[in-house]
């Protein structure tokens, strides 16, 4: 079985803090990590590799050269091959341009049975690249996968809904997007880390390598444009009630009932 896992390197937004004085983002020391949902995607691929023979996992990412670390980590977790698609021409890609670029890379990889993507990236939260990639490749898709079984060429998956789940079946090749509930990602092994740097390589592909024209990627091929960005005006700070004893609590409830909030 040949598996492609698409990952993204993202800033750990859990670690992002706002400077209380200036109201700006404190980015210093914010680590870059493999996007959470993508780690679940990789873990599922690795579990298939643990379970079946002849499973080969290629991890694919589109990003700046620094994304090398995310791919090394994937290799350290157990992936077989890592590809970094990186080119200045890709800058400013929206989700559709990203999907088209990944399509070109997947076509160059050629042979695959399952493509795993994380549902969404924590720095964008769009959840669009997976389905757009599936469409561009003409593959059936199952998103929000929380449970997966493989039998021969058949894939059976649970797909999360807000109020339950669906049991869906399809055939390979297909694209699946994964969420946290699917599994618990493993750590890298220390041995894996040294292998990732000493024995394995990260292949670097640019726009030419994946035969994508400049009209098909980057800003030029992104249907959506950012017109404006602005900082949401934070709600003004309210009242800090002095103390933390019984009186303070009573005062709070008095104020709430005064305003008919309770």
């Amino acid at each position: 079985m040949k598996i492609v896992v698409c990952i993204k390197q993202v800033p750990d937004t859990n670690e992002v803090r706002i400077d209380p004085k200036t109201g700006t983002l404190i980015r210093e020391g914010v680590p870059s990590i493999i996007n959470h949902d993508d780690k679940n995607a990789l873990e599922e691929a690795l579990q298939l590799k643990d379970k079946y023979e002849d499973v080969h996992i290629t991890v694919l990412t589109m990003g700046p050269p620094q994304a090398d670390v995310a791919l090394r980590e994937s290799l350290a977790m157990g992936a077989d091959r890592a590809i970094l698609v990186s080119d200045r021409a890709f800058a400013g890609s929206d989700t559709w341009a990203t999907a088209k670029t990944l399509t070109a890379a997947v076509k160059k990889i050629g042979d695959y049975d399952i493509i795993f993507c994380g549902r969404q990236a924590i720095d964008g939260d769009t959840a669009q690249v997976g389905p757009q990639l599936a469409e561009d490749l003409g593959l059936p898709q199952i998103t929000y996968v929380t449970h997966l079984e493989i039998e021969g060429n058949k894939v059976k998956a649970h797909r999360a809904l807000e109020d339950g789940y669906e049991v869906l079946t399809t055939e390979m090749p297909c694209l699946l997007t994964t969420i946290k509930e699917l599994n618990e990602p493993r750590y890298s092994s220390v041995r894996g880390i040294f292998e990732a740097y000493k024995e394995k390589t990260v292949e670097m592909w640019n726009a030419k390598d994946i035969a994508i024209s400049l009209e098909e990627t980057g800003l030029n091929s992104s249907p959506t444009n950012v017109r404006q960005t602005f900082t949401p005006s934070p709600k003004g700070q309210g009242m800090i009630l002095e103390g933390n004893g019984r009186d303070t609590v009573s005062e709070l409830l008095f104020k709430l009932s005064e305003k008919h909030l309770i």
Binding site: R186, Y187, S189, V190, R191, G192, I193, F194, E195, K198
Partner: peptide, 17 residues
């Protein structure tokens, strides 16, 4: 996770670190 033999070679069961 191969943390018990970090400085020993892989051939000897270590992490090769």
């Amino acid at each position: 996770y191969a943390m018990m033999g970090i400085p020993f070679p892989k051939e000897l069961g270590g992490a090769g670190g």
